[in-house]
């Protein structure tokens, strides 16, 4: 009993260490956490700011519908080939199930959405890749939808604008995926020879077979700030050459410095810049002399 007088009666404090998952996890819908600076923001404000972090200017990923909404004239978009879906040509185990799961998750049928729209009343055909569907990987359907979109632009004699976001070729479709690089490029070449205007806007991430085909074939190649763009992955290069790569390796800014991009364009300026470039390519126009 006497002993108890000297015992500390202070309550033991338990500190809760949040799990890694909980740290990233913010109640969905109301708040969003910036993956770069970890600042928590109202989702509504973030969307109003075109999903560019209000604190650190990081460009968060946009899904296809957010992207279309962000730069096309409101209500001008008409989707084409929206019902095209992938098969399982190599009978790859679990592929169809994975596709079905992503269809449920994203509400789109494949990793690219294509259609016709306007920017400041200037018509164009647009293709927007969506990295939330199978990491934006390119299989037969992505290749075919993009090719058909290019053909549509050719048929209508309007510019073709593509927003890329892709991890590369879709492994589950093997060499059929590889050949989509050639298919889309062949279509772009024909369109280009007919005088068609091609604008490619690379967004995070644009890698592998997509970066080595249509993403790099624009008359104008642009990128969003800080996007990862490259052919071989950083880890593969480091393991192959056994050398540390610079911090900014394969970022938009790195590519601009190395002559691969016409410009890095901030998301808030994209619509105006695009509209200006489209207008310079409009046939006719009034000469002031």
């Amino acid at each position: 009993m006497f002993k108890e007088i000297f015992t500390k009666t202070k309550k033991i404090k338990y500190a809760t260490i949040p799990s890694e998952a909980a740290k990233q996890d913010v109640p969905e819908g109301i708040m969003t956490k910036c993956p770069n600076c970890k600042k928590i923001m109202y989702s509504k404000e973030l969307v109003k700011n075109l999903k560019v972090c209000l604190n650190c200017d990081y460009h968060l990923s946009m899904n296809a519908s957010e992207r279309l909404e962000s730069f096309l004239d409101h209500g001008s978009f008409e989707e084409i080939n929206e019902d095209m879906v992938s098969e399982n040509p190599l009978n790859f185990p679990g592929y169809l199930e994975k596709l079905e799961k992503d269809r449920q998750k994203t509400n789109i049928n494949e990793a690219v959405v294509t259609g016709i729209g306007t920017v400041d009343n200037q018509s164009l055909v647009v293709a927007v890749m969506d990295s939330t569907f199978r990491m934006g990987s390119m299989g037969s359907v992505v290749g075919e939808k993009i090719t058909r979109a290019i053909e549509k632009a050719d048929e209508l004699s309007v510019p073709f604008v593509i927003f890329t976001a892709s991890g590369g070729a879709r492994m589950q479709e093997g060499v059929l995926s590889l050949m989509q690089m050639a298919k889309t490029s062949v279509a772009l070449k024909r369109f280009s020879d007919h005088g068609g205007l091609i604008i490619s806007i690379m967004t995070h991430p644009t890698t592998g077979g997509v970066s080595a085909s249509f993403a790099s074939l624009g008359d104008y190649n642009f990128a969003e700030p800080g996007a990862l763009i490259g052919f071989a992955g950083r880890r593969i290069i480091e393991q192959t050459i056994r050398e540390d790569l610079p911090e900014d390796f394969q970022t938009s800014e790195f590519l601009l410095k190395h002559g691969q991009l016409d410009a890095v364009i901030h998301r808030s300026e994209l619509k105006d810049q695009l509209s200006n470039i489209l207008s310079i390519h409009q046939p006719g126009g009034d000469l002031e002399w």
Binding site: Y220, N221, L256, K257, H258, G259, Q260, L261, D262, A263, Q273, N276, I277, I280, H281, G285, D286, L287, E288, W289
Partner: peptide
């Protein structure tokens, strides 16, 4: 609108180039 880069090696800032309108003409 200034266009950068030679698409091969780098962007040389000793030469600038781009597209524009001159009295309405692209």
């Amino acid at each position: 609108f200034e266009c950068h880069g030679d698409r091969v090696f780098g962007d040389d800032e000793a030469i600038v180039g781009g597209i524009a309108r001159f009295k309405g003409l692209p």
